[in-house]
């Protein structure tokens, strides 16, 4: 599972991604107009997409999560796309980066859950007190805690393994087919090209999946109790 690249290289590339995004943000918020030009329109479309997504997933109070979800999407997308440009390297192909992102999300989700329910309600929700018979509650508490702990693991490994796998398959195709053919017959055929096209798709899909899962976890953590009961009443 080890990379042949030392970890700090990924940190440098992540820093470059931050820099690109900061320049992007400064460039697009400078000189805002009432009647948006082409560039401002493009940026507003991105923002509105996440605004609609947050409202449809979390509900009306989900507007405050748009910056988090949007930033995660843009950062992960920038990181993933950096892996497709030849001297670049996707910082998300390192478990360090993705685990950091997943921990940010999960810790924020816990903070929001405590803020929405209070500290007692937070633990009550883990045990589903009042929703299930009292004898099952301890068992459910354990299951819920384990599934809560599994969230950052699955979030980070999903993104990491996707990016790392894409890079490994690319590398394998280059070393197994492209390089020998070039050395023997001087035929520069890019065998890795289909995988890189797939990587372009995966870059967008994984960034989207990461940010929408963030929104879903936030929605689960902050759903209102009244709605919950109503939904249950409708279900029965």
């Amino acid at each position: 599972m080890e990379h042949h690249v030392s970890p700090w290289v990924f940190a440098v590339f992540a820093g470059i991604a931050y820099g690109v995004l900061v320049i992007f943000a400064l460039f697009s918020t400078r000189n805002l107009q009432k009647r948006p030009g082409r560039w401002q329109n493009f940026v507003e479309v991105i923002y509105e997409f996440f605004d609609n997504l947050a409202v449809s997933v979390v509900g009306e109070h989900g507007r405050k999560y748009v910056p988090l979800a949007g930033t995660l999407f843009l950062f992960i997308l920038t990181c993933n796309l950096m892996g497709l440009i030849p001297p670049g390297l996707a910082p998300t192909a390192s478990l360090n980066t993705t685990l950091a992102l997943a921990l940010i999300v999960i810790i924020y989700v816990q903070i929001e859950a405590i803020r929405a329910r209070g500290i007692v309600g937070y633990f009550k929700h883990f045990a589903r007190v009042g929703e299930v018979p009292i004898l099952i509650s301890p068992l459910l508490f354990v299951i819920e805690v384990v599934s809560e702990l599994a969230k950052p693991v699955s979030l980070s490994i999903r993104l990491y393994a996707n990016m790392f796998g894409k890079e490994q398959v690319t590398l394998a195709l280059i070393t197994a087919f492209a390089v020998p053919l070039f050395q023997k017959a001087y035929l520069p055929i890019p065998f890795q090209f289909p995988v890189m096209m797939l990587g372009l798709l995966v870059a967008f899909v994984q960034a989207f999946v990461f940010s929408i899962l963030t929104l879903i976890y936030l929605a689960l953590a902050t759903e209102h109790h009244e709605e919950h009961h109503e939904a249950h009443a409708h279900a029965h």
Binding site: S154, R158, I216
Partner: peptide
């Protein structure tokens, strides 16, 4: 897409 990502992540664990 969310469901596909969940299924896919199982493969990635085995990867």
């Amino acid at each position: 897409i969310i469901g596909l990502a969940f299924i896919e992540s199982l493969v990635l664990f085995s990867f």
